[in-house]
Every structure is written in structure tokens, then in C-alpha cells.
Design a protein around this nucleic acid. Structure first.
Lengths: 250, 250
DNA sequence: TAGTGGTCTAGACCACGGT
DNA sequence: CCGTGGTCTAGACCACTAC
């Protein structure tokens, strides 16, 4: 019923209009979780759209997690995933600006060191081999937010780093100072306690909780070219995830 | 050059084959970050594919973040986002099974309590008003992994919960015992220290680091219908994010 | 066997960016 | 102005599901 819907003169393309219509019907309860939507062919007939256009619309809804398609069966309204969460971490400077904070960095150390057992193991080099190391203290609104320690395979190449440590991210620094470029990464996030030597830099009491973000950079999916971590102050840093019925245009 | 590429007899659809080809050219350095790809029309000509098929392929690469399209200008190779991360948290049971662990739950408490100041504030109800509360200890491979405490507005309706606490997630429990259904959620993750009364349940020393996952459930994007949190053992739980040049079929 | 979604084609018009 | 990506069309064949 009521198929007098798509406005062909609107700036909003038809596939998006249909997505809004279907989203509304889902949110209003006309289509309930578990229900099947009309077939792509029927939707095209009802709204005078070609099947490809209907499919583009359904892709939008599927990406938002509102529906899911099953070959041979149909397209079904999903249960909203309220017990799932997606946390994204941006490159530090962008992440802080996204939060409305002013980022800054203070160089604590940068030099060539001999790999400890742990560093050697992570970087896949022999213990005592020379590796490049830097440490910087990251601020947000002039207050310590995180401590960053990074290690990379030593490549006699370029002189060494300098004040680019003021704004560049790890992968950019490696790219600028290494022949072997990183092409993939792996990050882990865990809760832990601040190390004694980090507490004073971060201006938190010893034993404070911190969020540890470990980062591996790989070249061609094989060798490790960089390893290190961020230590975020637990009292200042948290991650947010929202699942909301969106109206937003994009 | 070398346009003898797409295998029309393969089970892998042409758009995906082309995505693999282009991905390879990007990873091998034939196309470098910042370079523009051939136009969609030219790619179609080179590989004997229609433009829609080429576009589907480019969408795949764009979703992975390998390229980005700019109307009127072209499609460009992106810098890999190696300093970003995406952490996903699934509903507890699924999350554990995804990790190859066996989930289990032990009910610690379930009853009607009077809201403390904090609970009242979070749930947007008056202090001392009655709210429904449950607490369960979550296991993975028979060892404590997390503690869950959840609160919801009290709805005299259904009797009360029972052994559904063995397997149901918070939003499902609310849906089963409340007139007002949750339709959106908000989750926060932060590092903190285990509370003394939680340490023994989790079988960790007092003062241990924990990952706290706070959850709000909203109805119709307005009122809070549920609030609570998970306390994950810092020594057993971490989140992983990978950015890899994928070959994987899906 | 009939209906579904997944893929593909060979056209088309548009708004946009750079010339 | 021309080339770019964004959108749309009206067909088509396939694999899969359910009956």
C-alpha cells in the first residue's frame, strides 16, 4: 500500500529515500525483527525502481545492521545488536581532536639501544642487537594523557629522527626511516597497572590503572618492522561505542 | 599490460578477482599511496568487465580502506591506516566461543533493590526507588573471566528472572521482562582497578587491573531502561584489531 | 519447480573537478 | 569543455532454499 513514495525531483537519490522509508517501517514496528522484507523484485515493482537500485538500498540497511540477506530465502529484519560494541581508535592526534581536545607531544627519548630479551622477541631480532627506540609523552589540553614507547628494526639508512616526533604517527615515522615499509598492523588493547617509571611521567600515583595499546607493524605480512605500545591514563581515557537508529544523511 | 586476467570459469566472481588483482598491484607497489587508479571505464575495458562490475570491485577495496573515490577526480590509493584500530566486542557467549573458549555463567544474585545515588543517577530514577538487579560471574574454560552487574527499571510485570540468566544477554533479558523495549545502546570501555568485593569472585588479588565495559540501554532513543557493566580480568582479557591485506574469501 | 538473493551486462543521465 | 565517479535502468544467468 501507499507506493506514492519516491520523489524523483529530490536531491536525495531514490535508493536512499527507499532506505529511509524501510528504516522507518522497521523502527515503527511495521516490520519486526525476524520478519522478512518483500523480495527485491516486489520492492522494485512497488516503488517503481529497478532491482539494482533496490539492492543498493538494501546494502545500506545491511551495512547499518538493520537487515541481513540470505540467498534463496529472503532479506530479514535483524535484532538490533545491543550487546555488541565497536570501539575505534584513531591515530593519536586525530583521536584527540575528534574528542575536542588539543593534542601535543613531548619527546622523552630517542636513540639506538640494544634489544632486551622482550624487545628482541617482539621484533624478531637477536637479543642485544641494535634497535631504534623512541619514547614520547602525549598530552591532551596540556595534561599528560599517554606515554608512547616504540621500537623498530635498525636500518643504518637515514640519519635519525628529529622533531617530526612532534606530530607523526609510528607508521609514518617507520616509512620515512626504513627501506622496508609496513603494510599491515595488529593492535591489542588491555588493562594493566602503570609501571613505576611511567607513573611520574603520566602524573598518576603508582599502581594506577592504565589502558595499554600494543602495536605491531608488519611488512608484506611477514616480518615485524615495528613494535611498541601506548599507555593511556585510565582516569582520562575511555572508548565509546554507540548503536543508534540513525537518521543521519551522509 | 597483461589483461589476460579474469577467469570466467572460476567460482570466485569476477569483481572479486579484480579486487585481488588490484590489491596485489597496490601491495607490490605498482600503485603507490596517492596514485590514482585507472578510471572505471578504462578498468572495464582492460579486463572486459562492465562498469558496474568494476564499481563493485572498487567498493570492496574502498570498504577495506585501500582506495577512496572522489567524484570528478578519480579513485586514489589510500595510505594504509596502520595507526588506527577497530575493536569489536560480541555478546559474551559468542565472544568467548569466537575465541575458542567455553563460556559459562554462575548466578551470584538477582533481586529487587533500592537504588543507590549512583544507580538512580544512571537509570534516571529517584534514589531508593526499587530497581531490578542481577549479578553473574562469567566463566571461560571453567575459570572466572568477568563479573557482570546489571540494573533495570522495575516493572511489576513478569514474575522475575530465573535460569535464563544462564545464557541470555542483557538486552534479551530486558526484552523478556519489560514493556518498554531497548532499541539503542551505548557502551564505554575503560581500565580500572578491581573493587575489593569483586576480587575474590574473580579470583584475582585486590588492586588488580580490570577492563570495565559499561552499558546503557535506551528505549526509543530517550529513556534509560537498563544500565550496568562487565568487569573483565585484565590478565585474561584483551581486544584485538588487525589491519591486513586480506586474501581471505568470504 | 518456483522464488530468492548474488552477479553481470551495456547502455544512460547527472554533478562535479580541472582544462 | 571533457573526463571522473554517482546513480539508474531493464534485462539476464546462476546457486541456493523451500516446497
Amino acid at each position: 500500500m501507499a507506493n506514492d513514495k519516491i520523489n524523483r525531483n529530490s536531491f536525495i537519490p531514490p535508493y536512499f529515500q527507499l532506505a529511509q522509508i524501510l528504516e522507518q517501517k522497521i523502527l515503527s514496528g511495521e516490520f519486526k525483527p525476524g520478519d522478512s522484507l518483500p523480495s527485491e523484485k516486489d520492492l522494485g515493482k512497488e516503488y517503481n525502481l529497478s532491482r539494482m537500485t533496490v539492492r543498493k538500498c538494501l546494502n545500506v540497511l545491511a551495512e547499518r545492521g538493520l537487515v541481513s540477506a540470505h540467498p534463496g530465502r529472503g532479506t530479514f529484519v535483524s535484532r538490533p545488536a545491543l550487546d555488541r560494541a565497536v570501539f575505534t581508535f584513531e591515530e593519536y592526534n586525530k583521536e584527540m581532536m575528534r574528542r575536542g581536545l588539543t593534542p601535543d607531544a613531548q619527546l622523552i627519548a630517542v636513540n639506538v639501544i640494544k634489544a632486551t630479551d622482550e624487545i628482541g622477541k617482539k621484533l624478531m631480532v637477536e637479543t642485544n642487537q641494535r634497535v631504534l627506540y623512541y619514547c614520547r609523552l602525549l598530552f591532551a589540553d596540556n595534561t599528560p594523557m599517554a606515554l608512547e614507547r616504540k621500537y623498530m628494526r635498525f636500518n643504518k639508512g637515514r640519519p635519525i629522527l628529529e622533531n617530526e616526533l612532534q606530530y607523526k604517527a609510528f607508521s609514518e615515522i617507520i616509512s620515512a626511516h626504513n627501506e622496508v615499509l609496513p603494510v599491515s598492523s595488529r593492535m591489542l588493547m588491555r588493562a594493566s597497572l602503570v609501571a613505576d617509571e611511567d607513573a611520574s611521567l603520566l602524573q598518576v600515583p603508582p599502581g594506577s590503572p592504565v589502558l595499554c595499546l600494543e602495536q605491531f607493524l608488519y611488512s608484506n605480512d611477514e616480518t615485524v618492522v615495528g613494535w611498541g605500545f601506548f599507555i593511556f591514563r585510565g582516569d582520562r581515557y575511555s572508548l565509546v561505542s554507540e548503536v543508534r537508529p540513525l537518521k543521519g544523511v551522509e
